[in-house]
Design a binder for these strands. Structure first.
Lengths: 116, 116
DNA sequence: TTCGTTATTCGTCGTATTACGAATAAACGA
DNA sequence: TCGTTTATTCGTAATACGACGAATAACGAA
């Protein structure tokens, strides 16, 4: 992914919204991170999984799959995407796998969204 | 998109994380809306556009396109996605088009993320 | 009216996403 | 050891995404 190219800005154009322009600093790393977190939540089932997992504190992959109207293998893929984004963690517990939310990543998401 | 199927839950399983389970209520509409907003921000260039637009208050499509290392037609598609999600608004101003952020949608995003 | 400027839409291409069922791996109990 | 249970990985198919350049539309000025 290419980074934005800081070009000259604000050649005296502002029409639809009022107010003076504020300072703008490019933050490509934050943009990438926020985009990655948002991408992980860009599907309703994954939002559901995250919320469900937060309420349950922790639960097995099978329990999550029971909640959703898709195949277990599809749920497993969703879990992988959430895990790759750092939003959840999974650990082996016997033949099952126990998932729980990663509070740090969630806090980072809230911070980045809050900074918008 | 199918809605989650509220199945029986919490068959006495909790391993990796401590704490008692909290109440959980399915909110399929919120999940859909948050997913849609997140999808709109699931690309770094779109995050950049939103932040840039917030700082500038308003600006023309061409100014935005100058900032990014992709073709103007691609930027136009990104703007369309942000507009479809309700995050920005665009209005005709002569031969140009002036875009600005939609504060309501941004507030909704912050609310939904904050509720996680 | 015609021309130049600006932005979008169209057609296309390659890749990624979402979904499924089948096959595989890993752990435990009989 | 051999099944059973559980979850993931694999192979596949349909659709969506991101990108480009060319074509189109919309407006203002000459």
């Amino acid at each position: 992914m290419n980074e934005p190219t800081q070009a000259p800005v604000n050649q005296g154009a502002a029409a639809c919204c009022s107010g003076a322009p504020a300072a703008f600093t490019a933050q490509p790393e934050d943009d990438e991170r926020l985009a990655a977190l948002c991408k992980a939540l860009a599907h309703p089932h994954r939002v559901y999984i995250l919320r469900f997992l937060m309420a349950q504190r922790a639960c097995f992959a099978g329990e999550i799959a029971e909640q959703l109207p898709v195949a277990a293998s599809t749920v497993s893929q969703h879990l992988t995407q959430l895990r790759d984004a750092g939003l959840i963690k999974g650990e082996v517990d016997g033949p099952r796998r126990c998932y729980c939310v990663a509070p740090e990543a969630l806090a980072q998401l809230k911070t980045l969204v809050g900074a918008l």
